[in-house]
Every structure is written in structure tokens, then in C-alpha cells.
């Protein structure tokens, strides 16, 4: 039984000057070793939900708030984001708008300076972080002369500077090329596996994350529809087909077709059961091999 990192109970929030609730009655438990993927259409309340965990809501944005949020068993409702910075690191979508210092190194030092950490400790922490994230090359560069992926890594380094046990990333790959997005996800996976960070990621393009995440939560119009392991969620009826990753979508497509055509063996048809839902390409290969329909 792993430790609970975050527990949300009946969290509801309505922005000031808005007529409808951004999120309603969201209850969610996140374990300390989780790599959670938050999925939903644009405007479904993903960002709002993430901001409640870091205290930006309700302390930075005015509005109506209800429910309770606990981080490591501690209630955080009246803590502002600055007080929570040691517990939660937050990385935003647009790398340009979250970097306010003129070199990468100073950007990483910024949170440490805010907390009054002595200078020599700041330097050792920067040394550690640039090595961990592989950004030694750009340490003394301006954040505006480096690529989007490197900017996002800088932002992650700054979020990790205070060594929070949890990292929240709000659509961080949206501005990146496919390659740098993959590299970024690999680094997040490493942080999750080797450095025991809880990672919560919201993302539109699911396919690239499937190899790394262990849990998924689907939110629709401010309501948390379903959450759980990949298989649980993707095989659920609550989950919309539009948002399915490629492999499960292909699986469902074939399942439908298998009833129409006679050239599929009955054994093959039987395997098209939701319980066998493949998530990744290698899962799919395995499924086909069991049924003897596919050979390398």
C-alpha cells in the first residue's frame, strides 16, 4: 500500500465573473509513486484542477471554492502557492511566459533565492539539477537563445529547485516538437522512477505518454468521469472514443469489423474482448501472437 500524496475531496470551483463551475465535485486520490495523466478536451477544467493542487486556486484566483485538498495528509486550503512551493513544483504550458530571469542558472536559482537559501547551497543545487536534467551546456545561456524543449527543461529545473516531492505539468509539451516532447517525457519518467517524484501531467496527445504513465484520469466539463489504471480507464464506456490512443482505437475498430467479416477465425474474434485491451504496440503484438494471427 503506497503513500497518498494528494487527496481531493468534492473539490468545486467557480471563477469570479463566470456563470458556470469550472470543476464540480472532483474527488481523486494520487499515490506517492504515481505518474498520473490527466486527459480531457480543451476547456474541460484540466488546468483548473491542477491549479487547485498547487494553491493558485483559490489563493491567487478569486472565486467560489468548495471541498478539501490534502497534500501528504495536510490541509492546504489556506496556504498560498509560495508556501506550497516546497511541496509542489508547477510547470506551465508556455515556456516563455514562466521564465523571468536572464540566464538559465539564475532562473533555477530564483526559487532558492526566494526562500533565502545561502549562496553556496544554491550553487550546489544548480550543479545537481543541470546534471540531472542534462542541461549543463546551456547553464550560462540566455533562456531566449535556446530551444523550446530546453526552455521547458529550464522551467522544470526551476520547479525542482526546492526539491518538492511532487511535480505538476500543465500541457508542457504543447509548444514542443515531437522529438523534444519525447525526450521531456523520458526525463519525467526517470524522475518518477529513480527520484521518487509524484508526477501529474495533463496532455492532449496521449500516444506519446502511454509508455511512461501508470494512471490516467479523464475529466469532462468539470467532472471527473473516471480514473484508474490505463486498462481500466481506456476500456471503460465512460471514456470517449475520440480521445483514445491509436492502439486501443485500432483494437475497437477491428472488434467492430470482426463481427462483419467471416474471414476472422472465431478464436480471433473471442480475443477481441475488452479485458484483453492492448495499450501499446507491443501489447498488441503479444495479443496477435497468442492468437496465432501475427508473426514477426
Amino acid at each position: 500500500m503506497s503513500k497518498k500524496a494528494v487527496s481531493l475531496k468534492q473539490v468545486t470551483f467557480k471563477y469570479k465573473n463566470s456563470t458556470k463551475f469550472a470543476i464540480t465535485n472532483v474527488s481523486l486520490e494520487i499515490n506517492a509513486d504515481d505518474f498520473l495523466l490527466l486527459v480531457g478536451y480543451s476547456g474541460s477544467g484540466k488546468s483548473t484542477l491542477l491549479k487547485t493542487i498547487n494553491g493558485l486556486i483559490p489563493n491567487f484566483y478569486a472565486g467560489t471554492f468548495g471541498g478539501s485538498i490534502k497534500i501528504n495528509g495536510e490541509d492546504i486550503i489556506d496556504k498560498n502557492p509560495a508556501q506550497l512551493a516546497k511541496q509542489v513544483g508547477f510547470v506551465f504550458q508556455n515556456p516563455e511566459n514562466q521564465i523571468s530571469n536572464l540566464t538559465v542558472e539564475k532562473e533555477i536559482a530564483f526559487p532558492l533565492e526566494n526562500f533565502g537559501v545561502p549562496r553556496n547551497e544554491i550553487i550546489t543545487r544548480i550543479d545537481e539539477l543541470v546534471e540531472l536534467l542534462g542541461i549543463e551546456r546551456i547553464r550560462y545561456k540566455s533562456p531566449f537563445s535556446i530551444s523550446g524543449g530546453e526552455q521547458q527543461l529550464t522551467a522544470i529545473a526551476a520547479a525542482l529547485a526546492l526539491d518538492p516531492p511532487m511535480l505538476i505539468l500543465d500541457e508542457v509539451t504543447a509548444h514542443l516538437s515531437p522529438n523534444s516532447a519525447n525526450d521531456l517525457l523520458k526525463i519525467l519518467f526517470k524522475l518518477n522512477q529513480e527520484h521518487d517524484k509524484t508526477i501529474i501531467l495533463s496532455e492532449h496527445r496521449l500516444d506519446r505518454c502511454l509508455n511512461y504513465v501508470n494512471k490516467i484520469a479523464y475529466i469532462e466539463q468539470g467532472k471527473l468521469k473516471i480514473s484508474g489504471s490505463l486498462k481500466e480507464v481506456l476500456s471503460s464506456k465512460e471514456y470517449p472514443e475520440n480521445l483514445l490512443p491509436k492502439v486501443p482505437r485500432l483494437f475497437y475498430e477491428l472488434a467492430r469489423k470482426s463481427n462483419d467479416f467471416n474471414n476472422f477465425s472465431s478464436k480471433f474474434r473471442k480475443s477481441f474482448n475488452v479485458e484483453n485491451l492492448p495499450i501499446t504496440i507491443s501489447d498488441f503484438k503479444k495479443l496477435m501472437q497468442i492468437e496465432g494471427e501475427y508473426h514477426d
Binding site: F60, A82, Q83, N114, A158, A159, L162
Partner: peptide, 17 residues
Amino acid sequence: EAIESRGWNATKNRTYL
């Protein structure tokens, strides 16, 4: 939002790199 999340004004005695 970003600087709030990075501990803006967390302590009175700020240090400098």
C-alpha cells in the same frame, strides 16, 4: 502564476546568487 509557484516573497530575507 509562475513566480507565485516558485515561492515569490516566501521569506523576508531573500538571498542572491
